[in-house]
């Protein structure tokens, strides 16, 4: 028999604050992303060649011709669907199955557990042993897909320099920098680079890569938030310039 203690927790600190903040943050960002996705507009600045990462690559018939860097390969989407719905499953899949975000929403949204040593409200618990949560094991495939999309974002960021340099260029560049740091710091990436090896001594290059990625990996949570927030900032900047609400600050030309 366990010690009989009626309280769900005896913690006296504000243990509910981090999950609440996480929940609010994720909710706000999801709302913003959904609004921008279904807006279907203001994603491309023709004059300076800024493309928001949320619409990159733009692959369907309704894309603005100049924004479709790889051509409009897919037919027009039916109904209210917009070009990002093609890439969002991969981007969302990467974040949703990410080891950090899993921790974040298991705690903040599912309260399993809400905080350490605070009882969870669920009577039964099977963790990640069954469908649907067993699918979290597919994280590495989303990592591959997200890496490809990241390369396209890098291409977009450099392509935008072809008309000069403005604040938008800097924003796009910082964005891909943060996205790259987040993607490289992924636990699956760490595993693939070298973590799966039993004998580091036989693979000096992979050992070196693992060592570097491990350093980044220790900051995975910070990078997850920084890159997520900055994607929204980048998108907002492009939207404001594209809609003519603000003018891009130009440094060269």
């Amino acid at each position: 028999m366990r010690a009989q203690i009626a309280q769900r927790t005896l913690r006296t600190d504000r243990w509910w604050l981090p999950p609440l903040a996480t929940f609010a943050g994720l909710l706000l960002i999801s709302i913003y992303a959904a609004v921008r996705t279904f807006m279907g507009d203001h994603y491309w600045v023709d004059e300076y060649r800024y493309l928001t990462p949320m619409y990159s690559p733009c692959l369907t018939e309704e894309c603005l011709p100049n924004a479709a860097h790889f051509g409009r390969l897919l037919p027009e989407l039916p109904g209210f669907l917009t070009p990002p719905v093609i890439i969002i499953p991969f981007l969302l899949g990467f974040r949703v199955t990410c080891y950090y975000y899993r921790k974040a929403y298991y705690r903040a949204a599912w309260m399993s557990p809400p905080a350490c040593a605070v009882a969870e409200p669920h009577a039964k618990y099977t963790g990640e042993t069954r469908f649907p949560l067993i699918a979290q094991n597919l994280h590495r495939y989303f990592f591959y897909a997200a890496s490809l999309l990241l390369l396209i974002n890098v291409y977009d960021a450099f392509y935008a320099f072809s008309t000069g340099i403005g604040l938008g260029n800097i924003v796009l560049l910082v964005n891909v920098g943060l996205l790259a740091a987040y993607t490289l710091s992924c636990h699956s990436c760490r595993h693939i680079a070298g973590g799966r090896l039993k004998h580091f001594s036989k693979h000096p290059v992979r050992y070196w890569a693992w060592t570097q990625i491990s350093k980044l990996n220790a900051k995975h949570m910070q990078l997850a938030w920084a890159s997520l927030i900055f994607v929204c900032v980048t998108d907002l900047y492009v939207a404001l310039v594209a809609s003519g609400t603000i003018a891009d600050l130009r440094f060269v030309n």
Partner: peptide
């Protein structure tokens, strides 16, 4: 291992500051 949902409370309380979740469970 599948029951662990990597919510890191083990890491949070370890007095030896071992990164249990990042370095043992996730790998």
């Amino acid at each position: 291992l599948g029951l662990c949902n990597i919510t890191k409370c083990c890491t949070e309380v370890c007095p030896e500051h071992i990164k249990i979740t990042d370095n043992a469970l996730i790998p």
